[in-house]
């Protein structure tokens, strides 16, 4: 009993890591622009596909660079995937969101545009690459360790480690660096920031780079852990990560991180001890309860509206 509990904690840490990584991206963009970037889940999916093609290319499946060892491929694929995914994210921002922002339209129209961009990414991928699933190559052979009856794999440890490192890095960037300060400034008052001589657009682009880059990272590791990738893989996990981000208190990095793990824990534990169909029911009831007790989420700070 204790063993399966411990085992499930590990499972939950792995599953929660993905929610956290995606929620971090939501949170960054939301914190700066107050925009729910609904395309984020699909950027995550694009990240997984980019990772797939990077790895295939580096592994020599297309005839170049044959025979690189798996760990080296991974080391090269991580930055490559992050950069390329960031390019996708920034492109969306430039083409779809920025013109709307310039026009000063209702925020909800930007949200709808984001939703539509997500659909375009999803179905564009499906139409171009076909409906067959892709099998992600094994970069690092899975090693199973057993400690006190609890099994751990190297991939699991890697995923959890990556999630924690990403959180620390993002936290550092947002709280300790100059550009992080600018990001916080924009979220505090978007109209005063340009007056202070801060290039708001650059900061926003940087935010998208960060958010999408980490979505790409999540995509890469997701594909390594669950090696069957398909165009719809990002849709559901994206929505759930968004919910996790809100429950944590959207706009707060620590909140998004904690929210992701919370959702992961609830989901895994429900499945482990109840019939699996109760998962969404119990998970969302708990979230609803949290939101009704703390309407701004776990780490969110209520802002008083002035008259």
């Amino acid at each position: 009993m204790l063993q399966s509990f411990l085992q499930n904690i590990l499972n939950a840490l792995q599953w929660g890591s993905f929610y956290s990584l995606i929620a971090l991206g939501y949170c960054l963009v939301y914190g700066v622009l107050l925009l729910i970037n609904f395309a984020h889940g699909d950027i995550f999916m694009v990240g997984a596909y980019i990772a797939f093609y990077c790895c295939m290319f580096l592994l020599g499946k297309f005839g170049v660079f044959a025979g690189l060892p798996g760990w080296m491929v991974l080391a090269v694929a991580v930055p490559l995937t992050m950069v390329l995914t960031a390019v996708v994210g920034v492109t969306l921002e430039r083409i779809a969101y920025r013109p709307l922002r310039r026009k000063g339209v209702n925020r909800l129209y930007v949200v709808i545009t984001a939703l539509m961009c997500g659909l375009i990414l999803e179905n564009g991928n499906l139409a171009l690459l076909g409906a067959s699933r892709k099998s992600f190559p094994t970069l690092v052979p899975i090693k199973v360790f057993e400690i006190f009856g609890v099994t751990v794999t190297n991939i699991k440890l890697m995923v959890i480690g990556v999630a924690i490192l990403s959180f620390l890095l993002l936290h550092f960037i947002v709280t300790r660096t100059k550009i992080g300060m600018a990001m916080r400034a924009i979220s505090y008052d978007r109209f005063a920031v340009p007056l202070m001589g801060i290039p708001a657009d650059t900061v926003i682009v940087f935010t998208f780079v960060l958010g999408s880059g980490f979505a790409g990272l999540a995509g890469l590791f997701f594909a390594m852990t669950y090696p069957v990738i398909d165009p719809y893989m990002g849709a559901l996990i994206g929505w759930k990560a968004f919910i996790a981000a809100v429950v944590g208190g959207i706009g707060s990095i620590a909140g998004a991180f904690a929210g992701g793990f919370l959702l992961g824990f609830v989901e895994i534990m429900v499945v482990a001890f109840f019939p699996s169909t109760y998962r969404d029911l119990i998970a969302f009831s708990i979230l609803l309860l949290i939101l009704s007790i703390r309407p701004t989420g776990l780490f969110g700070v209520a802002r008083r509206t002035k008259i």
Partner: peptide, 19 residues
């Protein structure tokens, strides 16, 4: 053990099965 269409993580169910 059960899951629902489109799930990708079966670790909780498989933990029960393995045990």
């Amino acid at each position: 053990e059960t899951f629902t269409t489109k799930d990708v993580d079966f670790s909780a169910q498989l933990t029960n099965i393995a045990k």
